[in-house]
Every structure is written in C-alpha cells, then in structure tokens.
Write a protein that binds this DNA or RNA. Sequence first.
DNA 1: TCATCGGCATACCTGCAAGGTATCCAAATA
DNA 2: TATTTGGATACCTTGCAGGTATGCCGATGA
Lengths: 303, 303
Amino acid sequence: MIELRRLRYLVTVADEGHVTRAAERLGIAQPPLTRQIRLLEAELGVTLFERLPRGVRPTEAGRVVVEAARDVVARAERIKEIATRAARGEQGRLAIGYTSSAAFHPFVTQQIRAFRKARPGVLLELAEDGTPELVKALKDERLDAAFIRSTSTDVAGLAIEPLLEEKMVVALPAGHRLARESKLTLAELAEETFVFYRRPTGPGLYDAIMAACLAAGFSPAVGQEAPRLSSTLSLVASGLGVTLTPASMQRMNVEDVQFVRLKGAKGLVAPLLLATRRRDRSTLVEAFRREAKAAALKTNVAA
Amino acid sequence: MIELRRLRYLVTVADEGHVTRAAERLGIAQPPLTRQIRLLEAELGVTLFERLPRGVRPTEAGRVVVEAARDVVARAERIKEIATRAARGEQGRLAIGYTSSAAFHPFVTQQIRAFRKARPGVLLELAEDGTPELVKALKDERLDAAFIRSTSTDVAGLAIEPLLEEKMVVALPAGHRLARESKLTLAELAEETFVFYRRPTGPGLYDAIMAACLAAGFSPAVGQEAPRLSSTLSLVASGLGVTLTPASMQRMNVEDVQFVRLKGAKGLVAPLLLATRRRDRSTLVEAFRREAKAAALKTNVAA
DNA sequence: TCATCGGCATACCTGCAAGGTATCCAAATA
DNA sequence: TATTTGGATACCTTGCAGGTATGCCGATGA
C-alpha cells in the first residue's frame, strides 16, 4: 500500500533532480532515499527516473506521477489546517482570485468585503494573478472562484459568467498634448504609440482594442508590451506611449498619468467575469456566485 | 508528519462507526487501531470521534476531516493507475515541431491528428519553426520530435529518419505565360527569375534545386529570398518570380499563384524527415516514431 | 588512456513505530 | 447485580525506515 512518505520523497527528488541533494534536504542519508525511490518504482511497476551520470531525471511517466504525487501531498498537508479550523468552529474556507486589473475594480473589493462581513466564520483566501494562472488554479482546486477579464485558454469544466461591462478610458502621460481634452475618439489617437499588456493565449482585451482601432481606420503602433495590465500604466507614466484601460484603473492614481474619457468606441468595453468550477456546487461558492450576480444586476440597473 | 495509513484508518472507522468492526475490515486487531486513531487526534490537536457506549461517532470537526481524508486517500489510490497508464504512453506530454513547409503536408497533420485521437491523455504541444531552430529545440529538449525537410547543421545526437519523398511543382504568378502548360521541364524555366527561401545553414532544398537547374543547363537568376518556404509563395503571387515548391504546398491555395507539374527532373524531390533525440527512448516518442514510420511505409507503397 | 571524482546502488546493521495478545473498564442491557 | 459489548491500557514482538561502509559506473581532465 502506497504511503505518503514515499510520495514526499518522490516529489523532493524530482524537484532536486538529484538523490543526494534531495536526501540532504529531507534530512536523511542518500542510501535510504535511493531505496525508497526504488521501492516506489517497484510498487508502481514503472521506472520513474532515468539515472544520469550526474543526478537523475524523471521519465515521461515519472513526470506524470510526480504531478499526481505533488497534488496528493499538498492536500494531505492541508488536512491539519482543515482540522484546526473545523475545531474552532469555522464554517469553511473560500479561495478567491482576481486578475490584477480586476483588483482595482470597486465591485470586486466591495463583493469580497460584503461576503467577509456577512460570514465572519469563513476564511477568505485571496490571490492576484494573470487570467491563465487563475484558470489553472481553479481547475486544480487551489481557488474556488475568480474574477477575470477574458476567457483565456481552455475553460472546459469552468462556468464563466459575465458580471459587468466597463467603459474604457484613454491613459496618457501627464502633459500630453491630448491630455487637456475632456473626451477623445479613437481616431484622434491614430498617430500615437501604444503600450499594451502582453496578449494572453486566448482572445482578450488586446484583440478587442486592436479590432476597435482597425474599425476606427488605423492600426496602432505598438511600442512596448507589459506582462500585466497594471504595469502598462507605469509605461504610460514613463512616456513610452498611451494605452486604453478599463475605467476602474483610474483608481490606481498613478502619478504622471492622466485619464481621458473615450468617445464613440461602441463595443469597446472591458468585461468583468466570474469563473467557478462547473462541478462545484458547494454552499459557499454558490452563495458567493449568487451574491455577486445579484450585486452586478443591481449595478447594471443603476447605471 | 501525517501518513496515509492513519487517514485510511480514519476513513474506515468513520464508515463503520465502530473501531472493532473497522479493525476487522482492515485485518488488524482492535487495540492498534484505537491507538492509531488517538495518535491522529493528538497530531491534529482535535477530537475526531465521540466515544459512545456502542461504537463511535465523528464529531463536527471529525466529519470535516474525514471528508478531506477520504479525498486524499482516493487520490493516492489513483496514483498507481496513473502510473501504469503513463507507462503505457496513455498520458504525458509530447512536443512536436515542424518546419513551415511541413505544416501543410497532409501526412504531418494526419499523423498528429491520429496520435491525438489514439491517446487523448497526452498533451501535445506543437511548434512551427525553421529547421535549424527545430534542431536546436530538439537538443535543448524543448521538443521531442520534429518534421523537417533537410538535415541542416549539426545533428549529432539526433536520429534523422526519412519518411516520404515528395514531388516538386512549379509555382507561377497567375497569368504567367507558362501557367497554361500542364507540365513543365526545368529547362523551360531557364529564362525566369526565381525566388527562393533563404538558404539554411546546412544543405537543403535550396542546394538540390540549384544542382538540378545546373544539370538542366542553366544557372537560375535569383530575384529575392524569403525567410520561409511559405512566404516565397506570396512573392510569387506578387509577380516577383517563379519558384519550385513541394507539391503539398499547393494546399495553401494562395490567390494569384498557379501550380504546374514538373516533368523529368529526376532526383529533385523534397524529403520529409523525422528527427528525434537518439538517446530518447521514452514510450511516447517511440510510439510516435513507430506510427509515423508505419504510416509513411503505407503511403509509399500506395503511391 | 589512466586517474580521479561525483553520484547512484548494494550490503548489512540498528532502532522505532506499528501490530499483536492479554486484560481492564465503563456503560448498556436483562 | 450479572452479563455483554466495545473501547482503552499495558506490554511484548516484528517489520520497515534509516544509518554506515563500500561498490560501481560514467564523465571529466591531465
């Protein structure tokens, strides 16, 4: 019968790529570790590592098994925490993620605050990351819900629900010749250099902006790309170009960036989406979803 | 450090509601089981069971922990199955590359599609690039196999295996004076300007074409070079010259390009090769190689 | 090409924790 | 109050993880 110790050893060896170093990290000697790995291989009936002259390397099958083992080990580690929390009578735990651009959206912070207030017994865990990473974390059950801005890659098994649509605004370096306007059309930006956040692996804001510019009769000159929507603003502040961002980003209050409303770029909106696991019908997630959708509806009616 | 044995015991006791019966089911005596449960309680710092006059009952916290334990145990049990499946090549990851000209070859797409269908558990990663880049990626283990057209630079450590040989066709701008012929000889192209894709760092199609032209009694006038075989076609479409391409490129269906069969240029063929790492004897790569070679053999016999 | 080294494998011993047996004890029947 | 049921305790036994010593193989370098 397979035991956790072996799996922990397996993961460590895979991480180190080196039995001796892994043994060191585990605080045991090398020979027992070698033996444990071999016993595990015998038990699974699979060669997990190629033995190289220097170190070891997981075989193809090894990689797959290591990932599964990592998952099991991580879940086992969490049990202790689950136990103490359950003993304290806490009603559960909800891990919520959001893309960096959603982090500044008042709706998101408002929802999280309201949920925390209504359920003080629930431990909220928050994480900020890129949409593809959030999607992966949802699938791996490291997250229970995520506010995202685009439907990125492979979302099979996830429920993606639109909450809000947000207007876009133009972000300009302070003192830019257009910064004194109260409204701008896309066409007025035709001569500008744009900075963008890196195109995600799926259709996203990037493509929508591109399409809108083309519709306005120009192809934007892209100066530099940034890994996060939020970091484009520092590029704008540095004068490397202009960009379009969701209106809520104005709250970031970056020095040397001025925002101007965008006029007549219909269809150019930043959606705010809520992603959950389709299978996951746990009470907490369900409540969070329900409340978020209700609040979104109210916001949309008010607007 | 928490171990799976304890978790298994915990789940069994919870299921039976009875330490003695659980012990029986586990094939151990009752006292050790009692002790293991108490040790687990001590480790987690939580009382998991209420001791009743007849049997035991999980506490509130106990129920939560039991569910978490059940999940971990189930996942651990699955690891063995995951391992055997991975060893059989039903799971894992395979990164395949192809040169842009091979990308349009029906054989290549067919092989990849068939492999994906036969092994849905395998994550296929595809990359299109030039032959030298593919060779480098193979050596760096960013790729596991690559369809290439020529044996480029330094292929030490790689196994290069011929799969197919493909006829060449003449690509002409639409409306070209020779475009109405049904067949052309090389000699008939002696007065034409040629466009070529850039010569790779090793011997390739370029040299084969050059040699064939020389054998036909002329040295081709080279008009412009393109970085990819596929982009030569747009040059042809723009009327910058004619070129010779593998027959499968006809599928690209470029507007303003017409293809004419080539007559009597024996030896002028575009090989399709499969490159793998010589050392790499992983199940997945091996299976892919085997199936590609088998399919190639069948295709050659049919042709 | 031979010496050296780095690093996994093998052999064999040791100690601890899981398992076994015997027995106790508390509460629920009768 | 006697009996039964089932978990707890005490104490012995054993198997498996861990330790030390050493072998062996391939890679590197003089």
